[in-house]
């Protein structure tokens, strides 16, 4: 029973990983920008949420109304700069690594390295939970999963069924040809970068809802989020969601069966095995190389 509980909680938390990974995966897949600064955006979203809740007394979930547009703007600006400087793949990895260091240090200088957590009075979701027989699902975790699933599902439908989404996929496959068919890659890029920023705002909010906050936590996201991106397949949103849930489930199980500290081993083993056997993600349909 403990294992089932752990697996279920893990799977729900996996939704958060998936949401964190979604922005990274789409900018990597569509724009070929590996944006490590995305972790900085999530961190910024988390701290903004914290500020808005403790300072202004806003409902944590409502803060998204403020943070999402702000980070949409930041994400779009960032993408504009990458595009302007012609930063793709490797260079973008380096530049965004620098930006991430700057962001984390700025966060440390502003909010100190202390752990911060929303008090129970400020977080109306913290104390309630849903009970299904002997399984207990904390409301925060449940909310986190639902929001993440809605956001990613929406993104997936957009990509799959709208003209815009088709344009993006065309762009991801062959930029030159897509451009020749009238796809304005700059505007598209701004939109994707902005959407990634907004998703970071939501992910940050959810993280603040469920966890303690410290600037260095951004590093801890690295491993698990990249695991989700790679396992889900770069640029594949639905794959990201499934991979997120799977990774969360696995971590949950591992931490009750062995110990929580063995989680990273299992995760990285999973990434390496996945890279060996399914280099394009678990859900890639194989074709001619």
């Amino acid at each position: 029973m403990i294992a089932v509980q752990a697996a279920l909680t893990g799977a729900l938390i996996g939704g958060l990983y998936a949401l964190m990974a979604a922005g990274l995966s789409v900018t990597w897949g569509v724009l070929r920008v590996i944006n490590l600064a995305h972790f900085g955006l999530i961190l910024a979203g988390a701290y903004l949420t914290y500020e808005l809740v403790t300072g202004w007394g806003l409902d944590p979930i409502l803060t998204v109304v403020v943070t999402a547009p702000v980070l949409f703007g930041v994400g779009a600006c960032l993408q504009w700069a990458y595009e302007r400087m012609n930063m793709v793949e490797f260079n973008s990895l380096l530049v965004s690594f620098g930006l991430l260091m700057v962001t984390i240090q700025l966060a440390t200088n502003t909010w100190t390295a202390d752990f911060r957590r929303l008090a129970a009075t400020e977080n109306p979701y913290a104390t309630s939970s849903l009970e299904l027989g002997r399984l207990i699902l904390p409301t925060t975790t449940l909310l986190a999963f639902v929001i993440a699933a809605v956001f990613i599902g929406g993104g997936h439908l957009l990509l799959r069924h709208t003209f815009l989404g088709r344009g993006m996929r065309a762009f991801a496959q062959d930029r030159t040809v897509a451009a020749a068919f009238g796809i304005d890659h700059r505007r598209l890029g701004l939109l994707v970068g902005g959407a990634a920023g907004a998703s970071a705002a939501v992910a940050g909010m959810i993280f603040t809802l469920t966890n303690s906050l410290t600037p260095a936590v951004a590093y801890e996201w690295f491993g698990i989020v990249f695991a989700v991106v790679i396992l889900g397949g770069v640029g594949n949103l639905l794959g990201t969601l499934v991979a997120g849930v799977g990774v969360g489930l696995l971590s949950g199980l591992v931490s009750v069966i062995w110990s929580p500290s063995t989680e990273p081993f299992v995760l990285f083993l999973a990434i390496i095995l996945a890279l060996l056997w399914r280099p394009h993600g678990l859900f890639h349909r194989r074709g001619v190389a």
């Binding site: 930063m87 530049v95 930006l99 991430l100 700057v102 240090q105």
Partner: peptide
């Protein structure tokens, strides 16, 4: 000291752009 990582990060960004 608190600016150290900021300066290093900014230096990296600037370098990749100006003199890769």
């Amino acid at each position: 000291e608190s600016l150290e990582n900021i300066v290093m990060g900014a230096l990296l960004v600037g370098l990749v752009i100006v003199a890769p």
